[in-house]
Design a protein around this nucleic acid. Structure first.
Lengths: 341, 341
DNA sequence: TTGAAAGCGTTACCAA
DNA sequence: TTGGTAACGCTTTCAA
């Protein structure tokens, strides 16, 4: 691998000049620059990133910390985040936290050791704080204490709209399935559900009559199946499974128990993996704007890097979209949409 | 951020000693080492990765080049690859090629600029060659010229087994859907299909009688739907869609055309995304051992890094598994499994 | 507009 | 076993 000194020698200039010609900062005569560039091409010169990072005190690398690479919910954001960052000249270092506090600490150490210029972080520990001084943007979830700017989906509004859709279809006995109550995603989704339910006069945990319930489990297929098993003796008319994994769990449970969707039970979901549309008759869902979230997170982070005074931590809420498909059945009790039965 | 010099000063030793104490290479008195480590902890010292990379001429970073982060086929391997690499002290730099030769070239430049120690690569250009001298392991696909070691699924055997399953169920009019013919995945999957079909006496492209066809399109849902549209006038008894995207395309097409699976058309797939099992009555498929492939790729790469003489390029073929579910209907014409109709 | 030279934080060599 | 010192390749003063 040839170095800048090689290029300078071949071009017949000093290293300083060569550096300026190549980086494009500082004065260089047009003709000199041409010669340097030519020499660089001839030698197949590539700037050494390590030397640059050492001298410039910035690595041009940003970290992405997420619970699990193999989860389409995160990768949907990661894909556009990556391309946005790439366009701005940053490389992406990926570390996974495995949804554990230990894993998260380990990932932070990795990031710090690598001198990343900033981090996009899907937080695990609701009370964790990012290392001071490092530009961090939280994605999807946010921690309790507002230590960093977060880019999230407006789940409250989205789930409320989804819930209203159920209510409009004539449902008055609703169950929402959420994950661990410490996660911001759990509480916000539950809150959207409760708001819409309360506004329609559904009473939480009422033994009968118009009612709604919130069941907390774990954001996984097993969690969803287990939760349905738990309430199986007292099934609602509709269940809102507030993550795609929970939807899978409900579907699995329904298949095993012979419960037909939407005939025996209406189902609404969250997220929009490709199979939602494929599954007959399609899962009605609230789809967070994952791509847009990734884009915004990248932009926010880039804006924060290199700035000495960190802008105040804010939460950026992006609106998603309710997608109506066939997993909800209009009841005889009839709502605005009328009954199909 | 404190430096090694700070640590050395606090511990009352020279930087050389401090370096040896911390890196654990070279002679250091036990007591001295303790003092250094203590000082390091007190100062919250972290080794500067850039300086280390510059001096050691290796970055402890490996690159992962894949077509698209948002594709569960690759992330299934990437997840275990990441954890394996992490355990060996390597960080993962991710670049996407977007399935284009240009994107691939750009990704290579990124990798070279970053001085990565090695690369795990899902090749796009079937004729491309990795930069000489850099340890590279190809994942999933391999290039035509055996320039690097590749870790792939034994698609020939797997697809042959899957095809035999169809034949055993009494099918004698088969279509296989594959992607671009330059990709090794396309040719190997097609070859497994042809082998099994020929062994059962199916004639390729025969106008009637026991026959089989191979239709090349693009590895995408649109490609699958378009291919089905193209052959819709002359439907086979069963179609083998040789990627999960193609399966989606077939399913979408079937939904739109009112073709029932498996009643009107049997379907077999490849890969095993979570929704295969969920989709009623389940997609019968050949599932490549993605996790194991990721693990092996990581191990092979680690073994190659730091070794001066590159071991010869070999292709490591890992066996996958055929998963039988409900998307194949036994025909009246009856095979060993007998007909359900 | 240019060249020389001083670091950036490590590791590795060498003499003590 | 230790400390001093010379690189590693680059950017960035500073004088010329």
């Amino acid at each position: 691998m040839s170095t800048l000194a090689d290029v300078a020698r071949l071009a017949g200039v000093g290293v300083g000049t060569a550096s300026r010609a190549i980086s494009g900062k500082g004065y260089v005569d047009v003709e000199t620059k041409r010669r340097v560039l030519e020499a660089a091409t001839a030698l197949g010169y590539r700037r050494n990133a390590a030397a640059r990072a050492l001298r410039e005190r910035r690595s041009h690398v940003v970290g992405l910390m997420l619970p699990d690479i193999h989860n389409e919910f995160y990768t949907a954001s990661a894909a556009v985040l990556q391309s946005e960052l790439d366009a701005a000249g940053y490389q992406l270092l990926v570390a996974t936290t495995g949804n554990s506090v230990d894993g998260e600490r380990h990932a932070w150490e990795t990031m710090l050791d690598r001198q990343v210029d900033g981090v996009v972080h899907v937080p695990v520990d609701p009370d964790g704080a990012p290392p001071p001084g490092l530009p961090v943007v939280q994605l999807n979830r946010h921690t309790r204490t507002a230590t960093a700017t977060a880019v999230v989906s407006d789940d409250v509004a989205g789930v409320a709209e989804l819930t209203r859709h159920l209510i409009d279809a004539g449902h008055s006995d609703l169950v929402a399935l959420v994950g661990a109550p410490q996660l911001s995603t759990s509480t916000e989704r539950a809150s959207g559900f409760r708001q819409a339910a309360a506004a329609a006069g559904l009473v939480e945990n009422a033994p009968e009559g118009p009612r709604c319930r919130v069941v907390a489990t774990e954001f996984s297929a097993d969690g969803g199946a287990e939760a349905m098993e738990r309430i199986g003796h007292d099934l609602p008319g509709a269940v809102v499974a507030l993550s795609s994994r929970l939807v899978m769990g409900v579907l699995r449970w329904a298949g095993a128990r012979g419960v037909r969707i939407p005939d025996d039970l209406s189902l609404a979901g969250l997220g929009d993996p490709e199979w939602y549309a494929l599954w007959q008759p399609g899962i009605t869902t609230f789809a967070p704007p994952l791509a847009e979230m990734g884009r915004r997170a990248a932009l926010e982070l880039i804006a924060r890097i290199g700035r000495t005074t960190a802008p105040p931590a804010t939460t950026i809420r992006l609106a998603g979209e309710v997608k109506v498909r066939g997993s909800i059945r209009a009841t005889a009790r009839g709502g605005v949409t009328g009954g199909r039965s």
